[in-house]
Design a protein around this nucleic acid. Structure first.
Lengths: 249, 249
DNA sequence: GCAAAAGTGTTCAATGTACACCCATGC
DNA sequence: GCATGGGTGTACATTGAACACTTTTGC
């Protein structure tokens, strides 16, 4: 019985929010709160973001970044992780709170505040999974330089995540999070160049990376076609974690 | 009539939240959302934070940073500015979103997510005003190194704001925001040292500051007692804004 | 004249930047 | 043997860090 009352009550609440009735009572203190996660990876030498196609209104049929409501008993980081896991099967991800967007007009006919996160993933760790998620018609990678029209303020959120990623990269090699476990120095440099949107000097880049003590030679080389094989590196978890601790804790 | 229904409804909502009933319905999507603002200044050669004493439960009688609910039609920056203005009469402030804290246990018997901001103010711009605010018994500056026991997770929020302020200071001279309009180089250096919690070399500091082109000589000097007068500087708004634009936009 | 804070330069180390050629492989 | 991307070192400029004495004023 109580359950019934509450559910009627919640439905009413929702209707009110949806039609903006509550806005006339400025002291009302109830909002909806979501998390949205900008998921970035590098694939085919392109920086890409994961987008989902919306099935429901508002913005039905438009692409958006994955998101969801924060559950009442769930902390925000866990909500972000849940959204991330619904769309990808991940491990060892870099996930950071980005910014909270709450313009009253960002969501039509309701007040929805969203706490945005961004995640950096290895392409190899990802298996896209449409079935796992409701309200989604499609899940796809999109190049960040060729975004389709996006729902809500998601374009702004993605742009902000790119800016933040750039800032992070200048402090600490988060680009490792985007690459396969074993990579060549050229691949690493490419990922820096994609994120920073500028070209880097090959010799200086290699000098700096090797001097940083974060790389481990694997003694393996690429078996490529029609060119000289490149040495494969992985990164030194111990050194890297100590640096992450320094920069992020 | 409608108003009446809504208000009963809201009261019910509040009771539910307060007693944690909603937590048993994990898919419920209603939370309370507040802003809390860490307000910092330098006074008497100390870095201080503005705290208010709570009149109501929870944490009645404890100190906390000023905050308030976000109104439904109000964007989050405006809510933070409103909270700031309720406590101080400010102009020309530095106000930045800090982080959103939403641990389900941070607030007793309710789910309250808070979007934290921090503000840097000139002590001369501030007149504390207790009357202006409800639910507050007292408003006072507290040295950040000698904080009383705080309500909620406000200690964590203050610590995070200090960390962020330090990061900002290393990029751009936000310390200007904390000083009077005219200041001596020694005062400026002191403010850096208070924030960064380390001593700086006088000659290197002055060299760097003067080379940055952000300072303007005022041709005035301090009229102090029993010591050599010091040159007063103000900062060059044009140069500073171009740098702020560079770092913060 | 002396106490107290203001003001002032040089040296060295580390880091970043610019720049061009040879190497190993597959075809 | 040639096309393709892999790999390498040096010189210069900029920046940050260490360090001690003289100057101006009020009393």
């Amino acid at each position: 019985m109580l359950k019934k009352i509450i559910s009627v009550f919640l439905a009413f609440n929702k209707i009110l929010l949806y039609h903006g009735v509550m806005r006339t009572f400025a002291e009302t203190k109830t909002h909806e709160v979501t998390v949205d996660v900008v998921i970035l990876t590098i694939h085919d030498n392109k920086l890409k973001v994961l987008l989902v196609k919306r099935v429901n209104e508002p913005f039905r049929g438009k692409w958006s970044i994955p998101g969801g409501f924060i559950r009442l008993s769930e902390n925000i980081d866990d909500a972000a992780l849940r959204v991330l896991k619904e769309k990808t099967s991940v491990q060892n991800i870099y996930l950071e709170q980005l910014y909270t967007f709450g313009d009253p007009l960002r969501y039509p006919n309701a007040r929805v505040i969203t706490c945005a996160y961004f995640a950096l993933l290895r392409a190899e760790d990802i298996k896209l999974d449409v079935k796992n998620t409701e309200g989604v018609a499609d899940v796809q990678w999109h190049e960040v330089d060729k975004l389709p029209p996006l729902a809500f303020d998601h374009k702004e959120i993605i742009e902000y995540s790119l800016k933040r990623t750039r800032e992070r990269l200048e402090l600490c090699p988060v680009a490792f999070q985007l690459l396969p476990k074993k990579f060549t120095l050229t691949e690493l440099q490419k990922s820096y160049e994609l994120i920073l949107k500028k070209t880097l000097d090959k010799r200086n880049f290699r000098k700096k990376m090797l001097a940083s003590n974060m790389l481990v030679e694997t003694n393996e080389v690429t078996k490529s076609v029609s060119k000289r094989p490149a040495a494969l590196y992985s990164f030194d978890n111990i050194t890297l974690n100590s640096k992450r601790g320094h920069f992020f804790s």
